[in-house]
Nucleic acid binder design. Structure first.
Lengths: 217, 217
DNA sequence: ATATTATTTTAGACAAGCCTAAAATAATAT
DNA sequence: ATATTATTTTAGGCTTGTCTAAAATAATAT
């Protein structure tokens, strides 16, 4: 059996490692999990013994295939529940993350299959993030931070960061949703802020914001 | 904050006390919770300190008003989720209990309000059990065990025991669902078994079964 | 190359929720 | 009224997941 805490660690490692493409350090994980490095070391040892991760002292952790399966299953559940909350229960964008953080831990294969079917087998969640399939296959989206685009560039928003309710409220207000076209008008080199146009309206975005909007590459 | 274990104890105490009408003994609770009496004593002390129950050593526990509110909120969530699973996700009767045992612990007032609305504010769950309202008001159904009826009696099934999947499968097969009329043809005094008719078909029910079918009084 | 700083691990402790074994109390039988 | 039996509580211990403080290791700066 896998515990709630273990699932959360594995999910976090998956995200921090960028889908398994790099090692994750103890301190990063501690910050992401809102806990202390010492606690992380303890958990790392346990996950390592259970072969969900490989771990070399002082050099961070990597998910094993087994660990990736668990992480992707949790992410699949999270994103399906978010979709449910928005599409069926009329939640708004910025309200769903916390609830989905709880719902993602419900253990029932049947439930998640039925939910998937009920939602019409969605491919992405309300924030544009791809939903892994039953086998943990996830479509690696061609995506890049808006922050990296040069002025003049015209692209389509594919996803936004899903966990910050304040940010989401703001993005919603300016109409920055997946599927929308966004154009970079100008970019301030010194602070990374930019002027963009969405729906023919102009907005100034801080670097912070432009790093949390992902566009097609 | 209230923990998952605490919620489960309070719910169990509510059921065992028959909605608060009698004290619950340590051993009963231990059996219901699938744990040992010593563990129950520990938890009882904690719940008592937190004022969810009143407790006199050696004489069992009673829910306080505060404890009843928590118990009814958990029961409300359980029954709404069961309704969702059956009505929206096409689960069958006997599959929903276990999943609802998990879903009932999701903490989000907003979620449960939206769910209630989405389901059209149902008054009873798929097993016929009444769903408490937001304020924890629950309609005390006029119900009596089928087992207590005399031959010739004609009554309507109002509810069935919801936690035994085997039993539910059987009840489903013979058509014994809430709303159906059931008539007692004959009753064997020595073992409490009875012959009944449902949908103009006759069945022999053991005492066991007839105690888990509740009819209007 | 070595000293300083930053990161990570170890050691020891704690709360929650469970356990077993033993002691205390209540219920029951004679 | 007392002995036996059943129930409940206490005592002490275990695991999970957390913590702080101290020690070990790695990275960086001089």
């Amino acid at each position: 059996m896998i515990s709630l805490a273990e699932e959360n660690y594995l999910k976090s490692i998956y995200h921090l490692s960028q889908a398994g493409s790099k090692s994750v350090l103890t301190n990063e994980l501690a910050e992401a999990m809102n806990t202390k490095a010492a606690s992380v070391t303890d958990m790392i040892k346990k996950l390592s013994t259970k072969e969900f991760i490989s771990y070399e002292k002082y050099y961070g952790v990597n998910l094993t295939t087994k660990g990736k399966v668990v992480a992707l299953s949790v992410i699949r559940k999270h994103r399906l529940w978010e979709t449910f909350l928005v599409e069926k229960l009329a939640f708004s964008w910025d309200e769903v993350h916390e609830v989905a953080e709880q719902l993602e831990h419900i253990q029932s294969k049947r439930l998640i299959e039925k939910l998937d079917e009920y939602l019409g087998f969605p491919k992405v969640d309300p924030h544009g993030d791809p939903i892994p399939d039953t086998n943990g296959k996830i479509k690696a989206l061609q995506q890049v931070m808006l922050a990296t685009l040069k002025p003049g560039a015209d692209s389509i928003i594919v996803a936004v960061k899903d966990s910050d309710s304040q940010l989401l409220k703001y993005l919603d207000k300016i109409g920055a949703r997946p599927g929308k076209t966004i154009k970079v008008i100008e970019r301030e080199e010194y602070d990374g802020s930019m002027e963009v146009s969405i729906n023919n309206q102009r907005f100034f975005l801080s670097k912070e914001v432009s790093e949390n909007i992902l566009v097609n590459a």
